[in-house]
Design a binder for these strands. Structure first.
Length: 290
DNA sequence: ATGCCTGAAGGGTTCAGA
């Protein structure tokens, strides 16, 4: 099969983001797109975008609700075995639309919007940890050919925030959150963007306020976590900062990952992918996939 | 003054986000 481009993007209201989402789809031509914070019911999503997506050959799996949360997967390389939500996951207090998964192009793709946590020690924080434990249990059923994509609402390390001191006492950086993420990754999932840019300043979220994006004061909380069979195919992995610029952006940028063709028959050795293009610190130029 | 933006619901404001 041909190479596959997978992207994930917290759009912060797909209704507000239509003028950015459609041109972005046309420019980047992703084969699979995981969306988060769609903030629409399934019917409203299909009414809003069904025709536009069909014109672009995307099939859609939506799992949404009014006002908050909401996830989706768009695919033009097949969309089978769709599963809404995470089995056994807690609600707050009722179940929320925070996960949808499907088999796309031979890969089990999971689009997730992990609970925010609000304040360490709060009820919502405990909910976040419990929800992550359920996600881990579900992924554990078959991590090899799985890719978990989305807004994890956790910065994996201090290198993933602009200033660790600015986050003392905040969610997204506490040891229990990072441990929950590490336990998910311990199933064999690779953080493919960090693997590609081990020493770079890479963020995916910048607060709307106070010119945070302009100053590149952000966090890396939107991740692509790939099982071994997927991680071994990664050819490029980058953050599309262009989509955070200009008028009417989401506060998150998309993450884009290109996979080589799946090997035929035997899997063979898992070799490191060729080195990615280097972006200079402070450069306005985007890392481009080959 | 965590609410310097932004979005949603709903009503002249509040809550949520990370």
């Amino acid at each position: 099969m041909r190479s596959v481009r997978i992207a994930t993007w917290n759009v912060n209201s797909v209704k507000q983001r239509v003028p950015r989402l459609l041109p972005w789809l046309d420019a980047r031509e992703p084969d699979v797109v995981c969306l988060q914070e769609t903030k629409l019911t399934d019917d409203a999503f299909v009414d809003l975008l069904g025709d536009e997506l069909a014109e672009r050959a995307y099939t859609v799996a939506v799992h949404g609700e009014a006002t908050w949360n909401g996830v989706a997967i768009l695919s033009r390389v097949g969309l089978d075995d769709v599963v809404m939500g995470v089995a056994g996951a807690p609600g707050f207090p009722n179940p929320e639309a925070r996960a949808v998964s499907a088999r796309c192009g031979g890969v089990r793709v999971v689009s997730v919007y992990v609970p925010n946590g609000r304040a360490p020690g709060s009820e919502h924080y405990e909910y976040k940890l419990a929800w992550l434990a359920s996600l881990r249990e579900t992924v554990a059923a078959g991590p090899e050919e799985t890719v978990v994509c989305g807004d994890m609402n956790i910065a994996p390390t201090d290198d993933d925030v602009f200033d660790p001191d600015a986050y003392i006492g905040q969610t997204h950086v506490t040891p229990p959150e990072r441990e929950a993420l590490a336990e998910l990754q311990a199933l064999g999932l690779r953080d493919v963007v960090r693997d590609r840019w081990p020493n770079e300043r890479v963020f995916t979220y910048w607060d709307y306020r106070a010119g945070m994006f302009h100053q590149d004061l952000g966090m890396r909380i939107d991740l692509v976590l790939a099982g071994a069979a997927v991680a071994g195919r990664v050819r490029a992995a980058w953050v599309d900062r262009q989509a955070r610029k200009g008028s009417g952006p989401s506060d998150h940028a998309p993450v884009i990952v290109d996979l080589d063709e799946a090997p035929d028959g035997d899997i063979g050795p898992v070799v490191p992918p060729p080195s990615a293009p280097v972006t200079r610190r402070g450069s306005a130029k985007l890392p481009q996939s080959p």
